[in-house]
Design a binder for these strands. Structure first.
Lengths: 252, 252
DNA sequence: CGTCTAATTGAAGCATCTCAACATGCGTGG
DNA sequence: CCACGCATGTTGAGATGCTTCAATTAGACG
């Protein structure tokens, strides 16, 4: 959980008690193999998750078999906070690469937030930022060419991994198949392959052997029309959010 | 606000005090003309909104001028609850048709939730459902043909309007230009026009003079692969949500 | 060393876009 | 009340970005 704690501390330093409570709450740790689902469409949401290692995917499969990934929880991300108020989940969450996740049953999270209210705000904020990323994905799939779309995806992934210290210089580990990229972007696998070659040929990135290298960030961000504002990094939550969050887990 | 209250009461009956508090909080009412923005990208979020009449749009314009609508707040919807923990909004919110919205400053909403915690849960839930809709929009733009995509949009709009009693039989008012539909679906205006004609020719829907008629719901839902589960209608929030929500607006 | 998955390539088809023109409706001012 | 202007809707034709199909190569793993 150190990674998650580091990420939260970028917004607000945590007390020792808060850190300990977080660790105690996200006590269950699971290893997932590539393709293994943690939560299935239709399940009742029962826990909040945190990615410790690897790449996860929130995805839906249509009746014709096509799959779309709607979110890519990365290490440091807390996910499914929104599950709290829902009876059933409308999509699956699974591992894309080998992954390690920590989970916390809703009851434990409730307890956590009762004793450490500031953590509740931070959890809620995670969910809000996930929503912002989702909006950007709609924009990405709706209005960008395949080339720009892939570029944008790499910009986002690199920025988010950088936030939790998982980049070194211009590179980072990224264990995703081209099939995953195609499901993220709504493109065919074949076209993903061709776009990747073009991105490499133009000297923007390379992706090989589970390693992503950004050769020219400025150019990549330019073709992607990437503006990291939507990631709301290092923007401490608004102080005025307090009372609303006090009822985060209240009974309706 | 009656419409909003009715919608919330589908999840849980509200006390007279809760209803009064809601009305008092969302006291400011604004009329908007088509195209008029309520919130601009980069603004600091200052209030929570509720749509009383008309169609709103959450949208982003790319540097090349292309616009993508990422959400379509409809009458009865409470929007921008998530703005609470953010410093700046990453997109604009404006009216698509003539619209009437009620707004409540964050401070007032905080107060509301402190005195009526159950309302906090319901507000939060609104935000969560908005996220679920957003995920479906990613799927829609990413993996459906133009024909299915438009069909899905109409299914969603009709279902959501039906939830608040704004449909009569197989029809409902829907004041949106084809340009708006194109920005929702990521299609060109010309193609939207052709798809609409096809939908009409096939006897599925007609859209004219601000009125949408669903001639064959089953067929429409079938081509759209529409499963309303993601709208989470009439699914009361989970009781276990209470403590988390207690810190909804807590300071970080 | 053989098997399986992922990556790559080529060729052909089609869904969707772009451009460009024209029609329609509607509000406004003359 | 008509005429004009402007936004919206409609149509056609041609271009293209992306998909599909099908085959081949490369890499990973037992």
């Amino acid at each position: 959980m150190q990674l998650v704690i580091n990420k939260l501390e970028q917004l607000s330093p945590l007390s020792a008690a808060e850190k300990a409570a977080l660790r105690a709450t996200f006590a269950t740790v699971r290893q997932l193999s590539p393709g293994e689902d943690l939560i299935r469409q239709g399940d009742r949401p029962e826990f909040v998750g945190a990615v410790l290692q690897g790449v996860m995917a929130r995805h839906r499969t249509l009746s014709d078999g096509a799959r779309q990934i709607v979110a890519l929880p990365l290490p440091g991300d807390i996910f499914d906070v929104h599950g709290f108020t829902l009876r059933s989940v409308d999509h699956s969450v699974g591992a894309v690469s080998r992954a390690i996740v920590a989970t916390a049953p809703h009851a434990a999270v409730s307890q956590l937030i009762r004793t450490q209210p500031r953590l509740g705000v931070l959890l809620w904020r995670e969910a809000v930022v996930e929503g912002a990323i989702l909006r950007e994905w709609v924009v990405n799939c709706g209005r960008r060419s395949a080339y720009a779309r892939m570029a944008h995806l790499f910009c986002e992934i690199f920025a988010r991994l950088g936030q939790v210290g998982l980049t070194r210089g211009d590179e980072c580990a990224l264990q995703v198949s081209q099939g995953v990229l195609s499901d993220c972007t709504g493109l065919s696998i074949v076209h993903v392959n061709r776009v990747l070659q073009q991105l490499r040929r133009e000297g923007l990135i390379s992706l090989k052997g589970g390693k992503l290298v950004i050769h020219d960030w400025d150019a990549l961000a330019a073709v992607a029309d990437f503006d990291p504002a939507y990631l709301h990094m290092a923007e401490p939550p608004d102080i005025r959010a307090e009372p609303l969050f006090e009822t985060f887990t209240a009974q309706a």
